[in-house]
């Protein structure tokens, strides 16, 4: 890790450890005192950010500053002990924050990612191992129905079952005019964001016992779309909607279905075409907190929706919007 955010250095200093990746408080760290109350405005990096551009899908490890997925800060307390989870897009961003948190809460975790994301995925596998849990890396592109079905089967057999499915992977490209959205681009967005969850949930439900959960990553874009995110925003509206219909349908089986709606979050999606250069430099500036969110700020939401204590929550969308008013 070449980039160390101020927050990470502070955390590392607080914990009395030098190496950032090396210091991973797991379940055993429960007894540590909670850090002092912090002003949410000052907790993480603020714009302006350095202009930067990576080819799709982008790597968290190459971002400046590096996103915080909870590597040094998330402390578990056994809330998901013995669970088996599959997370798409688990190599970076919110999927990675969920993977780290799930493992530190005692779950075994399979992650899916694209071959180009191998470097990020290797870090996540290492973090899951350090939490004392089983990690199952499953690489491949979700735009194919046979692959999605195979992905679920491989996760089920490697983990010995499936209790938590997080459909999180997404394609996002900022394109100012609909006249510039190619059929290929539109298709790639729809396949990744809408078809893949359909194929995966369909394959997963027969393996899920009562008490299992499905979590979809939606967005504030579902409710208040940006003009340049025409294709992406409508897939997030679809996600918000399938969460509600499937919750009604799967309630009978005792399977809960919920969504997580982030505001602007500092992830590789944004530096690999999801935001224009100009927007990236001021990313998060328009939120009332004056900064973008970090993936770790959503980790607790994924855990909450997955754990048994949240047993009456289904068909709901939980947000981390920075004050922009959604969901």
């Amino acid at each position: 890790m070449t980039e160390t955010t101020r927050r990470q250095m502070l955390t590392a200093a607080t914990l009395g450890t030098a190496a950032v990746l090396g210091a991973t408080p797991g379940i055993a760290a429960e007894a540590q005192p909670k850090p002092a109350k912090q002003n949410p405005r000052d907790k993480y990096p603020k714009p302006p950010f350095e202009p930067q551009r990576q080819p799709w899908p982008g790597l968290a490890s190459q971002m400046k500053p590096r996103p915080d997925h909870g590597e040094t800060s998330y402390i578990g307390s056994g809330r998901l002990r013995g669970r088996k989870a599959l997370i798409t897009g688990g190599d970076s961003g919110m999927g990675r924050a969920a993977a780290i948190a799930f493992a530190r809460e005692g779950a075994d975790v399979a992650i899916n990612y694209l071959p180009a994301e191998e470097a990020d995925a290797r870090e996540v596998v290492d973090l899951i191992h350090r939490a004392g849990q089983k990690a199952v890396p499953l690489t491949g592109d979700l735009r194919s129905a046979p692959f999605c079905r195979q992905l679920v089967d491989r996760a089920v057999s490697a983990l010995g079952g499936l209790d938590i499915l997080v459909c999180n992977a997404a394609r996002q490209q900022s394109i100012a005019s609909i006249l510039d959205v190619t059929d290929e681009e539109f298709d790639q967005t729809m396949k990744t964001n809408i078809y893949a969850p359909f194929w995966m949930i369909k394959a997963a439900v027969p393996h899920m016992e009562p008490g299992s959960v499905i979590i979809g990553t939606t967005s504030e874009q579902a409710y208040d779309p940006s003009p340049d995110l025409y294709a992406y925003a409508q897939t997030k509206a679809a996600t918000m909607n399938y969460v509600k219909s499937l919750a009604k349908q799967l309630g009978a089986k005792g399977i809960r279905v919920n969504g997580v709606a982030p505001g602007p979050i500092w992830t590789p999606l944004q530096v690999s075409g999801g935001a224009s250069q100009g927007k990236l430099v001021t990313f998060g500036a328009t939120t009332p907190l004056g900064r973008p969110g970090q993936p770790v700020e959503l980790a607790g939401i994924y855990v909450r929706l997955a754990e048994d204590d949240g047993s009456f929550t289904t068909g709901n969308i939980y947000g981390a919007g920075g004050g922009q008013g959604q969901p």
Binding site: P47, P48, P51, S276, Q277, G278, K279, L280, V281, T282, A285
Partner: peptide, 10 residues
């Protein structure tokens, strides 16, 4: 300050 940095990047 922010808007000018953004325009400068573009």
């Amino acid at each position: 300050a922010l808007a000018h940095r953004s325009a400068l990047a573009e």
